[in-house]
Amino acid sequence: MKECSRVKRLLSRYADGESGDAEAFRLRRHLDICPSCREELAGLVKIKETISCGEKKTLPADYLLCRLRDRIARTGGRKREWCWSGAGDFSLRFIPVPVTAIALSFLLLVASFGRSPDTYSLEDYVLSGSRTNTAAVLVLMLGQEG
């Protein structure tokens, strides 16, 4: 029974001829002895046939080309349409995300350059290695000019 549930998951691939030789051999051996899996396979093949044997459509010769020529003439020749490897509108929807991220990064960069280093903290002063005394520290803490 456990074998059947495993086999049933592989039958779709088998019906498509995509199973490897060893797997196909194992499946055939199981199918020989299991009517339930044989029935499952027959059902899959039937569905596959039903879909693939549907009405095949054809366009009259040059019908589409005439429409295309007309459309191209109206909308301009080889005007290049931006297309990310044929992804069409699907990928265009994701463009605002990187664009916004780049713009924000740029603004932050500009803002950080624009900040004048007019504040000189007590930590900076002490870490700068300058000589410190109580008066100098007090002046910095109170924010007064030295």
Binding site: R71, R78, K79, R80, C83, S85, G86, G88
Partner: peptide, 29 residues
């Protein structure tokens, strides 16, 4: 829709790099 597909092909064929086969690219569009 088929017309739309081929218009996209017409306008973006220059950007087709050939990394995949043409039919694959066409079916993706």
């Amino acid at each position: 829709i088929v017309q739309e597909v081929f218009l996209k092909v017409y306008r973006s064929l220059e950007s087709f790099k050939g990394r995949s086969a043409f039919p694959t690219w066409l079916y993706r569009i």
